[in-house]
Design a protein around this nucleic acid. Structure first.
Length: 597
RNA sequence: GGUCCUGUAGCUCAACUGGAUAGAGCAACUGCCUUCUAAGCAGUAGGUUUCAGGUUCGAGUCCUGACAGGAUCACCA
């Protein structure tokens, strides 16, 4: 049984035997003891003084004595004010770490049979990926890994926004100014090439609007009347009618973009099990409008438009079908939700989408609930904050966007410079060194974006490149590499650090050793919390704490110059467990760890 | 204007869901490489947790009201 549960139960028992009080099941909670006090777990007695009818110190003493007598794992306790700090015996901790050492499946929970879809990335095919997409992609990928490790069956989905007026803008600009340019002929990556035309459209369009306004036209009207906009609108209609020429261009240009995305995704280390394209799904959901009308969930206005009334839920009325019978964004999302369920029989569906769409998802989920969808209870919007620059929001039209490919390339450069300055690539081949730079660069970038609570917006300053020291990916990677060096040496001197009797024979633990064990034991709980709260930052924070504690251990205690053979083997074994935990945890963040750095 | 989110050290972030003297990293300063990787370790300094009330034995955390920043509120996507 879990030791904390054991302690809680014994405390409940203590109350009934010492004070004749029956506490409700599960009402006891323990917290970790603060660093400056002796102990591992702390029970706060203040709330129970009305039961003990004694002062805090006395109550703590009595409960502490009861625990110590009842549980062999409890070696000691102390009471400070109303806080009962409980220490567990070294024997107990060694038993725990031995169990962990023997457990080959320590980092993977057994299957829950629950199927979860995580939709993330969801790019537009009119421009390349930028910094905001990086946060999205890393979050979505990491969350998927975390859910898998929690025992769920995960489907990673990507819903590509491959149609619409914005796509037509790139296409029109290409027709006007492209002169047959291709990624091959220009040497420009496909997504960037198409993005260039999107920018070109905007520039030329603004010029046209200005000319019209200068001629005296009202600005609102000019925006609609500008020839380029007219062409884009017309092209959208032609696309919807399946005009062969337009569809052909659309396919060609999208293909360029996909080739570009594929290489970026590959470099980022993210992937998908299921692709959805809006060109396939944009007409879905209309049948649900009909259904909603029949069920009385929606109502029709005089002009024929259909609305959902969510005022009973504290929201507004929301349009779900236009008067002309065409659908809007949310109609499509309703239909896609059904499609996802039909395709995969999912129990949960997570949408990794920025917080600018909070309201949209609030409405969508409430509508699906009203339509009594079986999956409606399992919907979750993982809403994350925007990544802002010191100058404010990124604006693609103002050229202040931090491009994903550029940023990754810069990070690799920085990693290279840093590593070379430190003189750390002795004995590396050229390709090993390149691989290391890539690992470190992406480690730094991913950790930077994942360590922060997803829902907070965050600041990225391109002037100050992402750190490699302190609370960073490379710090954790470095800790792993350090341990791997120890393992290599242990093997070289044929030290048997995997002998089954090691943990049984150790008599006493040093403080840092005990701290490490406590942290190692905490991994499953952190994994569970990260899964329950959909939060990779829980894992990131934990890994930093673990690496930090290991480095303290590393500095305070020696391993190979330790005289006692058993202690030496034990410290290597403990190190090995830390490295495995770091590797497993970093895997959940999508970050690789090097053997050497 | 309505709704939602955020506000913690100079900067970037924590704080185990109401518990002890609010913790890390960066930047600054001081030590530690003849010993397992110094991308490290130890230390110094840095705080009225935006403000004002309230609930509680106990509030960064909960409630009310300000203030500041952001998002959103289209027959756009």
């Amino acid at each position: 049984m879990d030791i904390t549960l054991k302690i809680k139960n014994t405390i409940t028992k203590a109350f009934s035997s010492l004070y004749d009080v029956q506490l409700p099941e599960g009402s006891i909670s323990l917290q970790p003891t603060r660093k400056e006090f002796e102990g591992t777990y702390t029970f706060v007695v203040f709330p129970y003084l009305k039961h003990t009818k004694k002062n805090p110190e006395e109550s703590g003493e009595e409960l502490g004595n009861f625990l110590k007598n009842q549980l062999e794992e409890v070696s000691n306790f102390n009471v400070v004010k109303g806080f009962l700090n409980i220490s567990l015996s070294d024997g107990f901790w060694l038993g725990q770490v031995e169990e962990l050492n023997n457990n080959t499946d320590a980092f993977q929970f057994p299957s829950t049979g629950r199927k979860v879809m995580v939709e993330y990335s969801s790019p537009n095919t009119n421009k390349p990926l930028h910094l905001g997409h990086l946060r999205n992609n890393f979050l979505g990928y990491s969350l998927s890994e975390i859910l898998k490790a929690n025992g769920h069956d995960v489907v990673k989905a990507n819903l590509v926004n491959d149609r619409g007026i914005h796509i037509c803008k790139s296409m029109v600009a290409y027709q006007e100014f492209g002169e047959g340019e291709t990624p091959l002929s220009s040497g420009i990556k496909g997504d960037h090439l198409v993005g260039n035309y999107y920018v070109m459209f905007d520039k030329a369009y603004k010029k046209e609007v200005k000319q019209l306004v200068d001629k005296g036209m009202d600005e609102e009207l000019a925006k609609k009347e500008a020839p380029l906009m007219q062409k884009a609108q017309k092209m959208l209609l032609q696309w919807e009618l399946g005009d062969p020429e337009v569809v052909g261009l659309w396919k060609t240009m999208n293909q360029w973009v996909y080739e570009g995305f594929d290489s970026t995704y590959k470099r980022m280390g993210v992937d998908f099990d299921q692709m959805y394209y809006e060109s396939d799904t944009y007409l879905l959901g209309k049948n649900m409008v009909e259904e909603g009308l029949n069920k009385g969930v929606f109502f029709k206005k005089e002009n024929g438009s259909v609305w959902a009334d969510l005022s009973d839920e504290g929201l507004d009325e929301k349009l779900v079908l236009r008067a002309d019978g065409t659908s809007v964004y949310i109609t499509q999302d309703m239909g896609t939700a059904d499609l996802k369920f039909q395709d995969h029989q999912i129990d949960n569906s997570v949408y990794v989408v920025g917080n600018e769409q909070d309201y949209h998802f609030d409405v969508l989920f409430k509508i699906l609930k009203k339509l009594q969808r079986p999956y409606a209870g399992g919907l979750y919007h993982l809403s994350y904050g925007m990544v802002d620059l010191p100058s404010g929001k990124m604006k693609s039209r103002e050229g202040t966007v931090v491009d994903a490919d550029d940023l990754i390339a810069e990070m690799v450069d920085t990693a290279k410079k840093h590593t070379q300055e430190l003189g750390k690539i002795e004995g590396f081949t050229e390709s090993e060194a390149e691989a290391l730079y890539e690992t470190l660069a992406l480690g730094a970038l991913k950790y930077f974006l994942l360590k922060v609570d997803p829902k907070k917006r965050m600041l990225f300053n391109p002037e100050e490149s992402i750190e490699f020291q302190g609370n960073t990916g490379p710090f954790i990677q470095y800790t792993h590499a350090r341990i791997r060096a120890i393992i290599r040496k242990a093997r070289q001197i044929e030290l048997d650090y995997q002998h089954p009797s090691i943990f049984k024979n150790i008599k006493q633990l040093e403080g840092v050793e005990r701290n490490l064990i406590v942290l190692l034991m905490d991994y499953p709980q952190k994994l569970k919390t990260a899964g329950d709260e959909y939060s990779p930052s829980v894992i990131a924070q934990y890994l930093f704490d673990l690496a930090k504690e290991y480095n303290r251990f590393y500095a305070e205690l020696s391993i190979f110059s330790e005289a006692n053979d058993l202690t030496r083997a034990f410290r290597v074994a403990l190190s090995a467990l830390v490295s495995q935990t770091i590797k497993a945890g970093m895997r959940l963040l999508g970050i690789d760890v090097p053997e050497k750095m």
